Computed example of a mutant assay.
Amino acid sequence: MPEGVSLGFDTSAAHCAAALLSGDDILTQRIEPMAKGQAERLFPIIEELLVESGITWSDLSVIGVGTGPGNFTGIRIAVAAARGLSLSLGIPAIGISVPEAMALDLPRPCRIVIPARANHLIWQNFRDDAEVTAPQQSDTLPPGPAPSDPVVPLPVAIARLALARRDRPHPRPAPIYLRPADAAPARDRGPVMLP
Protein backbone atom coordinates (compact mmCIF):
# COMPACT_ATOMS: atom_id res chain seq x y z
CA MET A 1 0.00 0.00 0.00
CA PRO A 2 1.34 3.46 -0.85
CA GLU A 3 2.27 5.72 2.03
CA GLY A 4 0.49 8.98 2.73
CA VAL A 5 -2.58 10.30 4.49
CA SER A 6 -5.85 9.77 2.67
CA LEU A 7 -9.22 11.37 3.35
CA GLY A 8 -12.23 9.50 1.94
CA PHE A 9 -15.83 10.67 2.13
CA ASP A 10 -19.26 9.97 0.65
CA THR A 11 -22.71 11.57 0.77
CA SER A 12 -24.36 9.63 -2.08
CA ALA A 13 -27.04 8.05 0.15
CA ALA A 14 -28.83 8.80 3.42
CA HIS A 15 -25.55 9.22 5.29
CA CYS A 16 -22.52 11.41 5.74
CA ALA A 17 -19.43 9.19 5.85
CA ALA A 18 -15.74 10.03 6.17
CA ALA A 19 -12.49 8.27 7.07
CA LEU A 20 -8.83 9.17 7.51
CA LEU A 21 -6.12 6.63 6.71
CA SER A 22 -2.36 6.70 7.05
CA GLY A 23 -1.21 4.18 4.47
CA ASP A 24 -3.34 1.11 5.20
CA ASP A 25 -3.98 2.07 8.84
CA ILE A 26 -7.39 3.49 9.71
CA LEU A 27 -6.84 6.56 11.88
CA THR A 28 -10.52 7.33 12.39
CA GLN A 29 -13.84 7.04 10.60
CA ARG A 30 -17.45 8.06 10.97
CA ILE A 31 -20.72 7.17 9.25
CA GLU A 32 -23.73 9.21 10.36
CA PRO A 33 -27.15 8.24 9.00
CA MET A 34 -29.10 11.28 7.78
CA ALA A 35 -31.79 11.83 5.19
CA LYS A 36 -30.78 15.46 4.65
CA GLY A 37 -28.24 17.93 5.97
CA GLN A 38 -25.10 16.37 4.47
CA ALA A 39 -23.94 19.73 3.08
CA GLU A 40 -24.00 21.27 6.56
CA ARG A 41 -22.46 18.24 8.29
CA LEU A 42 -19.68 17.09 5.93
CA PHE A 43 -16.99 19.62 6.85
CA PRO A 44 -17.64 19.47 10.61
CA ILE A 45 -17.27 15.67 10.45
CA ILE A 46 -14.01 15.97 8.51
CA GLU A 47 -12.67 18.54 10.97
CA GLU A 48 -13.65 16.30 13.92
CA LEU A 49 -11.76 13.39 12.32
CA LEU A 50 -8.69 15.57 11.74
CA VAL A 51 -8.67 16.68 15.40
CA GLU A 52 -9.24 13.11 16.68
CA SER A 53 -6.28 11.81 14.69
CA GLY A 54 -3.94 14.76 15.22
CA ILE A 55 -3.77 15.37 11.47
CA THR A 56 -3.94 18.80 9.84
CA TRP A 57 -5.27 19.72 6.41
CA SER A 58 -1.70 20.17 5.17
CA ASP A 59 -0.86 16.55 6.15
CA LEU A 60 -3.32 15.14 3.59
CA SER A 61 -1.83 13.44 0.50
CA VAL A 62 -5.00 12.62 -1.44
CA ILE A 63 -8.79 12.95 -1.27
CA GLY A 64 -11.10 10.14 -2.31
CA VAL A 65 -14.76 10.90 -2.95
CA GLY A 66 -17.74 8.66 -3.61
CA THR A 67 -19.15 9.67 -7.00
CA GLY A 68 -22.32 7.58 -6.94
CA PRO A 69 -24.54 6.38 -8.33
CA GLY A 70 -27.01 7.46 -5.69
CA ASN A 71 -28.78 10.60 -4.53
CA PHE A 72 -28.32 13.51 -7.00
CA THR A 73 -27.88 16.20 -4.38
CA GLY A 74 -25.68 14.08 -2.14
CA ILE A 75 -23.34 13.19 -4.98
CA ARG A 76 -23.00 16.87 -5.99
CA ILE A 77 -22.23 17.86 -2.38
CA ALA A 78 -19.34 15.41 -2.06
CA VAL A 79 -17.91 15.99 -5.55
CA ALA A 80 -17.97 19.79 -5.11
CA ALA A 81 -16.31 19.47 -1.69
CA ALA A 82 -13.58 17.20 -3.07
CA ARG A 83 -12.87 19.48 -6.02
CA GLY A 84 -12.67 22.53 -3.76
CA LEU A 85 -10.37 20.81 -1.27
CA SER A 86 -8.15 19.53 -4.07
CA LEU A 87 -7.78 23.01 -5.50
CA SER A 88 -7.17 24.72 -2.16
CA LEU A 89 -4.77 22.09 -0.77
CA GLY A 90 -2.96 21.36 -4.02
CA ILE A 91 -3.49 17.58 -3.74
CA PRO A 92 -5.31 15.15 -6.02
CA ALA A 93 -8.99 14.36 -5.61
CA ILE A 94 -9.95 10.99 -7.02
CA GLY A 95 -13.52 9.91 -7.74
CA ILE A 96 -14.43 6.37 -6.70
CA SER A 97 -17.72 4.75 -7.69
CA VAL A 98 -19.72 3.58 -4.71
CA PRO A 99 -20.22 0.02 -6.04
CA GLU A 100 -16.47 -0.31 -6.66
CA ALA A 101 -15.72 0.82 -3.11
CA MET A 102 -18.32 -1.57 -1.71
CA ALA A 103 -16.74 -4.44 -3.69
CA LEU A 104 -13.26 -3.82 -2.27
CA ASP A 105 -11.71 -7.04 -0.90
CA LEU A 106 -14.74 -9.18 -1.87
CA PRO A 107 -14.03 -12.46 -3.68
CA ARG A 108 -14.95 -12.42 -7.37
CA PRO A 109 -17.45 -12.86 -8.90
CA CYS A 110 -19.67 -10.64 -6.79
CA ARG A 111 -22.61 -8.30 -7.19
CA ILE A 112 -23.15 -5.08 -5.27
CA VAL A 113 -26.77 -3.99 -4.80
CA ILE A 114 -27.77 -0.57 -3.48
CA PRO A 115 -31.40 0.34 -2.71
CA ALA A 116 -32.59 3.39 -4.68
CA ARG A 117 -35.72 5.54 -4.74
CA ALA A 118 -39.14 4.22 -5.78
CA ASN A 119 -38.21 0.59 -5.00
CA HIS A 120 -35.50 0.57 -7.66
CA LEU A 121 -32.18 -1.17 -7.25
CA ILE A 122 -28.75 -0.03 -8.35
CA TRP A 123 -26.49 -2.98 -9.05
CA GLN A 124 -23.12 -3.77 -10.53
CA ASN A 125 -21.38 -7.08 -11.20
CA PHE A 126 -17.65 -7.56 -10.59
CA ARG A 127 -16.24 -10.66 -12.28
CA ASP A 128 -12.49 -10.12 -11.92
CA ASP A 129 -10.08 -7.18 -11.94
CA ALA A 130 -10.19 -6.90 -15.74
CA GLU A 131 -13.90 -7.48 -16.34
CA VAL A 132 -16.44 -5.21 -14.67
CA THR A 133 -19.96 -4.30 -15.78
CA ALA A 134 -21.27 -0.74 -15.60
CA PRO A 135 -23.67 0.22 -12.80
CA GLN A 136 -27.31 -0.41 -13.71
CA GLN A 137 -30.68 0.56 -12.25
CA SER A 138 -33.80 -1.60 -12.46
CA ASP A 139 -36.87 -2.79 -10.57
CA THR A 140 -35.57 -6.35 -10.24
CA LEU A 141 -32.20 -8.03 -10.41
CA PRO A 142 -31.36 -10.02 -13.53
CA PRO A 143 -29.67 -13.42 -13.22
CA GLY A 144 -26.10 -13.21 -12.00
CA PRO A 145 -24.00 -13.51 -8.85
CA ALA A 146 -25.77 -13.33 -5.51
CA PRO A 147 -25.62 -9.89 -3.85
CA SER A 148 -22.60 -9.50 -1.56
CA ASP A 149 -22.30 -7.46 1.60
CA PRO A 150 -19.31 -5.09 1.79
CA VAL A 151 -16.43 -6.12 4.05
CA VAL A 152 -14.72 -2.71 4.18
CA PRO A 153 -16.61 0.36 5.49
CA LEU A 154 -17.47 2.67 2.57
CA PRO A 155 -15.38 5.73 3.51
CA VAL A 156 -12.39 3.50 4.35
CA ALA A 157 -12.65 1.75 0.97
CA ILE A 158 -12.86 5.12 -0.83
CA ALA A 159 -9.78 6.40 1.02
CA ARG A 160 -7.83 3.18 0.32
CA LEU A 161 -8.64 3.20 -3.41
CA ALA A 162 -7.78 6.89 -3.72
CA LEU A 163 -4.40 6.41 -2.05
CA ALA A 164 -3.63 3.43 -4.30
CA ARG A 165 -4.42 5.56 -7.39
CA ARG A 166 -2.83 8.81 -6.25
CA ASP A 167 0.16 8.62 -8.59
CA ARG A 168 -1.83 7.59 -11.70
CA PRO A 169 -3.33 10.08 -14.16
CA HIS A 170 -6.96 10.67 -13.25
CA PRO A 171 -9.75 13.04 -14.30
CA ARG A 172 -11.41 15.40 -11.84
CA PRO A 173 -14.11 13.63 -9.81
CA ALA A 174 -17.43 13.64 -11.66
CA PRO A 175 -20.86 12.40 -10.57
CA ILE A 176 -22.17 9.07 -11.86
CA TYR A 177 -25.85 9.46 -12.73
CA LEU A 178 -27.95 6.57 -14.03
CA ARG A 179 -31.01 8.64 -14.94
CA PRO A 180 -31.73 12.27 -15.76
CA ALA A 181 -32.34 14.75 -12.97
CA ASP A 182 -35.88 15.12 -11.60
CA ALA A 183 -35.65 18.91 -11.81
CA ALA A 184 -36.91 20.67 -14.93
CA PRO A 185 -35.99 24.10 -16.27
CA ALA A 186 -38.30 26.94 -15.25
CA ARG A 187 -41.23 27.52 -17.61
CA ASP A 188 -41.20 31.28 -17.08
CA ARG A 189 -39.19 33.33 -19.49
CA GLY A 190 -36.20 34.99 -17.93
CA PRO A 191 -35.82 38.76 -17.84
CA VAL A 192 -35.07 40.58 -21.09
CA MET A 193 -31.47 41.71 -21.19
CA LEU A 194 -31.00 45.21 -22.54
CA PRO A 195 -27.96 46.04 -24.69
Rank of each mutant, 00 (worst) to 15 (best):
A82R: 02
A82W: 01
A82C: 01
A82P: 04
A82Y: 02
A82M: 06
R83N: 15
R83L: 14
R83P: 00
R83E: 06
R83G: 09
G84H: 01
G84E: 05
G84D: 05
G84C: 06
G84Y: 08
G84K: 07
G84W: 13
G84I: 04
L85G: 04
L85K: 02
L85D: 01
S86M: 03
S86C: 11
S86A: 15
L87W: 05
L87Y: 06
L87C: 14
S88G: 11
S88D: 00
S88H: 03
L89V: 05
L89K: 01
L89T: 13
L89C: 10
G90N: 09
G90W: 01
I91H: 04
I91T: 08
P92Q: 09
P92D: 02
P92V: 01
P92S: 04
P92H: 01
P92M: 03
A93H: 15
A93K: 13
I94V: 13
I94N: 06
I94H: 04
G95S: 00
G95R: 02
G95T: 05
G95D: 00
I96R: 07
I96L: 10
I96V: 15
I96Y: 02
I96C: 05
S97E: 08
S97Q: 13
S97N: 04
S97T: 15
V98N: 14
V98I: 12
V98D: 06
P99N: 08
P99S: 08
A101K: 01
A101W: 01
M102C: 09
M102Q: 10
M102T: 04
M102G: 00
M102Y: 12
M102D: 13
M102S: 05
M102V: 04
A103T: 05
A103C: 06
A103W: 10
L104N: 11
L104K: 14
L104H: 07
D105T: 04
D105Q: 14
L106Y: 10
L106H: 03
L106I: 02
L106S: 07
P107D: 10
R108C: 08
R108D: 01
P109G: 05
C110R: 00
C110E: 02
C110V: 08
R111Q: 07
I112F: 05
I112L: 13
V113S: 04
V113A: 05
V113N: 02
I114K: 04
P115F: 00
P115D: 14
A116M: 07
A116V: 08
R117I: 07
R117N: 15
R117M: 14
R117K: 15
R117Q: 12
R117Y: 08
A118K: 12
A118Q: 13
A118G: 00
N119Y: 13
N119P: 13
H120Q: 15
H120K: 14
H120C: 07
L121P: 03
L121I: 11
L121R: 08
L121M: 13
I122N: 05
I122P: 01
W123D: 12
Q124K: 13
Q124D: 04
Q124I: 10
Q124M: 05
Q124C: 12
Q124A: 02
N125D: 15
N125R: 09
N125K: 06
F126N: 03
F126D: 05
F126S: 02
R127K: 09
R127Q: 08
R127E: 10
D128G: 05
D129T: 04
A130Q: 11
A130C: 10
A130Y: 10
E131C: 09
E131T: 14
E131G: 02
E131V: 09
V132G: 00
V132Q: 14
V132H: 15
V132F: 03
V132S: 12
